[in-house]
Simulated scan of single mutants.
Amino acid sequence: MNRLFAAAALTTLIAAPASAHFQLVYTPDPNIERPGDVPLKLIFWHPMENGHAMDMGAPEDIFAMFKGEKIDLTGSLTAMTFKGADNEAAAYEATLPVKRNGDYIVALTPAPYYEGSEDIYIQQITKTFFNKGGIPTGWDEPLGLPTEFVPLNKPNNVIAGSTFSAQLLSEGAPVAGAEIEIEYIAAEPDMETNAAGEATVGAMPGGALVAITDENGVFTFGVPRAGHWGFAALGSGPDTEHEGKELSQDAVIWIKAYDLE
């Protein structure tokens, strides 16, 4: 069974909150004021529950797109250990070199992760957006990934209390009727200690937060509070098998919302 539909069935059958795996490409503030190297933390985790962290294998690819130029970030990868509330797990660090004003879109393709409880592999192809100087230069353009979200609102400065919309693509085509899991980073990682901070919210009752894409592959979510929000489409990618087992190839996007002050 496709993991997207399996997750929906499980949510229907049980009352306990569902745990959502989410791949992170994290730094505290995506809006960059001056040139320099921006540290990135690559963590596979349950961020809304401040729960279990999963061991990452070496990423298959990580790059940034800036004004049509692809910047390879694989040479900056360094293994690290992330400390969540419940356990420690293998994770990675990378560095984003920022020089000129504009949008830097980081795309991570992690190695497939084996989820023993479901007997499947999970690969969450993740996009995170950074900007220097407040000048938009391509945040709304697809990167040609196997599956990805293309934002319809500028993703690095969403206003808390407004809405965020994005279009889900698989091999460049819109995906209608897809379930989108929604996640919030409740305990933001400490960049120095590589450990989860204090949780600011708890897990939602009733299972995962979910939206559905329309006939054009678009979903909209009302963003209730400031912070980092993630969206995942389970099983939206074209690859469905890895090492003889089912593969859920997921699209993930992260945005940052701010309060008006």
Results as ranks from 00 to 15, higher is better:
G138N: 04
V218C: 06
G138T: 07
A199C: 12
A160I: 00
L247R: 01
E243G: 00
H21M: 06
R34V: 11
A178V: 06
E188L: 14
Q167L: 05
N131G: 00
K132V: 05
I185Q: 09
F129N: 03
W139K: 02
A18L: 12
M191P: 04
A211M: 15
K67P: 02
A6F: 04
L4M: 05
S76L: 07
A203E: 05
L152Y: 04
S19W: 09
D190W: 05
G133W: 00
V150C: 03
V218W: 02
N50E: 06
A173T: 12
D72H: 07
Q124A: 06
P47H: 10
A226L: 08
Y113V: 04
G51V: 05
A6L: 07
T128G: 06
N2E: 10
E241Y: 02
L145R: 03
E115S: 10
E243Y: 02
Y113L: 15
Y104T: 07
W139V: 11
S165P: 08
L209K: 12
A7N: 08
E261S: 12
D239I: 02
G172I: 11
P97G: 13
F63N: 10
L234K: 03
T95S: 15
L234Y: 09
G144V: 05
A58T: 14
D29E: 14
K99M: 13
P112R: 03
T27F: 13
G197L: 08
Q123Y: 02
N216H: 12
I253G: 01
H242E: 06
A211V: 05
T240V: 14
A187N: 13
P17A: 12
K154S: 06
H228E: 06
E183P: 01
A233K: 03
S165W: 03
Y104R: 07
W45R: 02
P224E: 14
G57D: 09
K132E: 00
P110N: 07
G75C: 11
P35D: 06
A91S: 15
A178I: 02
I182L: 15
A20I: 12
A89R: 03
L77V: 10
S19D: 07
D86L: 15
L143Q: 13
Y114R: 08
A173E: 14
T74P: 02
S165A: 09
R3V: 09
E246P: 00
L169H: 07
A64M: 07
D214S: 09
T240G: 01
T11C: 09
R225F: 13
N157T: 04
D37N: 14
T78H: 15
P59C: 09
V210C: 11
E181P: 01
Y104C: 07
L40A: 11
P238L: 00
Y92R: 04
A15L: 08
A166D: 01
S76K: 15
R100E: 14
L143C: 03
A160K: 05
N101K: 12
L209S: 14
W254H: 05
N87I: 15
K127A: 08
A187R: 06
A90C: 06
G68H: 11
K41C: 10
F129L: 03
H242L: 01
I159W: 00
G207C: 11
Q249I: 01
